[in-house]
């Protein structure tokens, strides 16, 4: 009887595990600490850019990149590779605009980064 239950439980358990792995990005993108909070980092950089505090904005962009890299390790199995790479590129471009002290360009890139972040783990 136990053998029969195992024969059913094993495939059902495996399928459940696969579903969990494939949909895990929606949960795993949430911060586990203060150094991987992507939305908070994004919001801080936007505030600094709007106030034209370029030094703080540049430091914030660096922290944002670090935070996203930490999240990437967790979500790579359930997120689109292109979304991850595009978001990384958007943050890099935002850093460039911040260095050039270009508020409009930096804000555009940060807005794109926000959209890409929302896409990770969502079933649109």
């Amino acid at each position: 009887m136990l053998k029969r239950i195992l024969l059913v439980a094993l495939p059902v358990g495996l399928i459940a595990l696969f579903i969990a792995v494939m949909l895990s990005a929606a949960v795993l993108k949430h911060p586990l600490g203060s150094d991987d909070d992507v939305p908070a980092s994004l919001s801080r950089v936007e505030t600094h850019v709007m106030a034209e505090q370029w030094q703080e904005a540049l430091e914030g962009a660096g922290k944002l990149a670090d935070a996203f890299n930490r999240v990437t390790v967790r979500v790579q199995f359930s997120a689109q590779l292109h979304d991850i790479l595009d978001l990384r590129a958007a943050i890099a471009r935002a850093e460039g605009f911040i260095k050039a002290q270009d508020r409009a360009g930096a804000m555009a890139e940060l807005a794109e980064a926000t959209t890409l972040w929302d896409r990770i783990g969502s079933r649109h």
Partner: peptide, 28 residues
């Protein structure tokens, strides 16, 4: 990326395991 690993190979391997065992279960 900044000291953190994003591995295409690892992702493909995990997805291969998912595909392989799903196919095995479904064909049975």
């Amino acid at each position: 990326i900044g000291g953190w690993m994003l591995s295409e190979t690892l992702v493909v391997m995990v997805r291969a395991v998912i595909g392989f065992f799903t196919l095995l279960i479904y064909t049975r």
